[in-house]
Design a protein around this nucleic acid. Sequence first.
DNA 1: TCTAAACTTGACCATTTTAGTCAGGTATGT
DNA 2: ACATACCTGACTAAAATGGTCAAGTTTAGA
Lengths: 141, 141
Amino acid sequence: MKLTSKGRYAVMALVDLARFDNINPVSLRDISLRQGISLDYLEQIFSKLKKNEIVKSIRGTQGGYVLNKNPNDIKLTNIFHAVDEKVKTVQCKKESKKGCNGKATKCITHNLWDELEIHINTFFENKSLKDLLTNNKETRV
Amino acid sequence: MKLTSKGRYAVMALVDLARFDNINPVSLRDISLRQGISLDYLEQIFSKLKKNEIVKSIRGTQGGYVLNKNPNDIKLTNIFHAVDEKVKTVQCKKESKKGCNGKATKCITHNLWDELEIHINTFFENKSLKDLLTNNKETRV
DNA sequence: TCTAAACTTGACCATTTTAGTCAGGTATGT
DNA sequence: ACATACCTGACTAAAATGGTCAAGTTTAGA
């Protein structure tokens, strides 16, 4: 299962973006400074977000990024999928004709992981960027 | 987030164990052969399961492992915890006095990960080894 | 009592993934 | 024209993963 900093950064950056892009495009530099994420790394992440049509880019001076959809329509599933965070619990090779063990059977626990995957994905499908904006203001420790 | 082969192997091995330990202790060698998991690796895993009192060991010829509890009382949470599969989504340092960013605030998405963690853990707390035994027989592909 | 089966422990390691950095671009508003 | 900001691909140090290897100890049974 992969769920690492890259996905977290993507979400953080998009929440940041969603807050400011009403006025102007938001530069990665600003996000970098506000969120404490390396600029170079952000560029990699936004390249993928753009390919997946979650953000639009505006080049040149005063350029930056803006959301390409309504925050309510950007689900966490979309974000993670875009940055290759695979919510995949184990590598039971589904596509292969053989089972997970190289035998002709599914491994004992196969169904369990399927269930878990559904459980987690449901969570992400029901959460949108908007939910994060309204419920999760940056709070003091 | 960590949820890898080690946890999967642990669950597979315990399901295997639960099926056979009514009669005799089950040797790791047998589990290794049946489940296709390296014997040496199983030893590492069972060492941890034993420390966490999930299994008992019986040394010597005809020895092996047996469950230390009723399958109904062994929740997946216990198993994952035992083998250090941390169902922890991101490294927001909770214990530190500082926030996740090194700033004095929680990061924007902090609550999200907390929610997710609870969501996943709930799943695992409600699943016992017994559930796997009854619902998930090894099935043909 | 001897021996083989099975547990026990700890060191070691190749590969892959992660979380970036670096070095060069290209586009465009002013 | 030039500074700002996007764009792209190569590279890499460190950590995690998924093991292997070696050298034991314990004990049932012949």
